[in-house]
Nucleic acid binder design. Structure first.
Lengths: 125, 125
DNA sequence: TTTCACACTAACATTTTTGTAGGTACTTCC
DNA sequence: GGAAGTACCTACAAAAATGTTAGTGTGAAA
């Protein structure tokens, strides 16, 4: 028996590692850090938004990518989709508790960038 | 004059905003969250690494993408490249203070993913 | 003597990502 | 009556990202 018996899966030999090419954590990381994934999570923080409203807030995203990325994040368990069977269609998107946690992290990154942009040589603004 | 005279650029009308398509902060965000950008920053945290050593640590990255992404991060001011004029070539990569700050943020994200992977439905592991 | 390592670059091929245009079925506004 | 809005999907096309291969010039190890 190893020293930490109750948390056997934390054995470093089996612990998730993004540096490993085929570790599931790498897939999740790419989803969250995909071109639109992060912005969607940020936009949804603490809010319930409809498809079109999100599209307006995230400048430059196409309908196709919004729909596609939302599906990925929903499959991961970060986004909750709630559809009302009415016409015209009404669908509400929000974050799951898990999604809120993830969103907090990329928000911190994007906020750091925004407030430190003037220190970043590679930024023109 | 506005209320906060000494920090005029923080006026919300001019503050950086990743939700704006052409804001420089969006470019920087995509660099850091690019497929390999984040992993490189994470690998370099608190370390001085040579090209080949990095390539070994970041499983799956090709020479081309490592070189290319390093150049982008160097231009942004996150990575420092130090070349010694010897043969065979010897080049050392490290993070600038700015890079360490950025790396800390994505590290927090990736660590959150690694430790919470078991809660993420979309992950097979 | 052959092989490997080093830190890349350039050309080319492929894969992935992203965009565009059109369609759906119905309602409300003008 | 026509346009716009809703939440998408599906083909198709274009663009971007990424991979593959080959090559550089030398030194050290097998």
């Amino acid at each position: 028996m190893s020293e930490s018996t109750t948390l056997g899966w934390q054995d470093s030999r089996f612990a998730p590692d993004v540096m490993a090419a085929d570790c599931p954590s790498r897939r999740i990381l790419t989803h969250i850090t995909s071109r639109w994934g992060g912005l969607i999570l940020i936009a949804l923080r603490g809010e319930v938004l409809r498809f079109s409203e999100m599209r307006r807030r995230i400048a430059g995203i196409s309908e196709r990518m919004l729909a596609q990325t939302l599906q990925t994040l929903e499959a991961d368990g970060f986004v909750l989709r709630k559809a009302y069977d009415v016409v015209p269609p009404h669908v509400e998107y929000s974050l799951t508790p898990l999604g809120e946690e993830a969103a907090e992290k990329i928000s911190e990154l994007s906020q750091w960038i925004e407030t430190n942009l003037h220190r970043i040589p590679g930024a023109a603004g």
